[in-house]
Design a protein around this nucleic acid. Sequence first.
DNA 1: AAGGATTGCATAGTGTGCTATGCAAAAGAT
DNA 2: ATCTTTTGCATAGCACACTATGCAATCCTT
Lengths: 157, 157
Amino acid sequence: MDMTFSKDRSAGYLANHMARLFFAGLSRRIRPLGLAPAQFMVLLELWEEDGLSQADLVARLDVEQATMANTLARMARDGLIDRQPSPTDRRARLICLTARARALRPQAIAAAQAQNSEALAGLSTAEQAQFLALMKTVIATMQKRRDASPGPGGAAE
Amino acid sequence: MDMTFSKDRSAGYLANHMARLFFAGLSRRIRPLGLAPAQFMVLLELWEEDGLSQADLVARLDVEQATMANTLARMARDGLIDRQPSPTDRRARLICLTARARALRPQAIAAAQAQNSEALAGLSTAEQAQFLALMKTVIATMQKRRDASPGPGGAAE
DNA sequence: AAGGATTGCATAGTGTGCTATGCAAAAGAT
DNA sequence: ATCTTTTGCATAGCACACTATGCAATCCTT
């Protein structure tokens, strides 16, 4: 087998590098709206369905609960969401969009679409479709492995 | 045009999600060696050529100088590198591997290769090659745009 | 040689992700 | 009904990325 290991042939390195460039590009485009990338992802879900719980958002975006708690705290600080007590569960708080957040939808989505098409501009339409399909497969593969590894002592109890 | 915007069809979202899964997988595999992913990337360069300057590493890994400074501080703290005064430039310090860091090479590279092949296990050999090629193209496209945007006032002075 | 511009690095502050921990409320078991 | 487990969320602490800033050393121009 090949003894060399070049970062330029490593899927993990390329994935990290590409994700950083996407992050920077989106960040630059939505900063004028007062948004950050992680906030935009939350807004995408809330624009679809307002009044979700934190746990709902965690499940939809596949981040850890603590990550979501911090992102939501910044969004509340920035006037993007209100948190109302859940009528059915006194532990939970429903995440509700402010008028300002609702108004940002068209510009924010346009910014994200612009970033995506700019990034993929070097690919043909067919290549773009295959690129997305390949990423989805790789994600699904890694998720399967992760969810099958319950950590130390997982199968021993 | 399509009014909907689904994160599952967004290259940027998929890139971020995939990169997080790669990060977590590599992290899990090299943690037993006392390494973190960003440290591993620096080691990859130093295993190729020891005694680089911080600026050299910044150029090779395409991260900001401040990011590299912090990563190197953690690596020095963890006994992976020594920083020796440069004989030719009193501002610079040459980054030199410790014996411990040198010894980690085979296991760390094996861990990274294992993570990459596990992640790509759902793709054929041809698909894997195309996947890497597509990522490289997308990266190059975004880098070109970034480097062509010198920021506010760039062309006006 | 002197002065201004550039280079090499460190530090502060922030965003986004993670693990680990703790607590209160809800749900389930007996 | 009480006790245990699970669930929903917050917080602390860390890694790693960024921008902005500052300082000292070097380089370049004159």
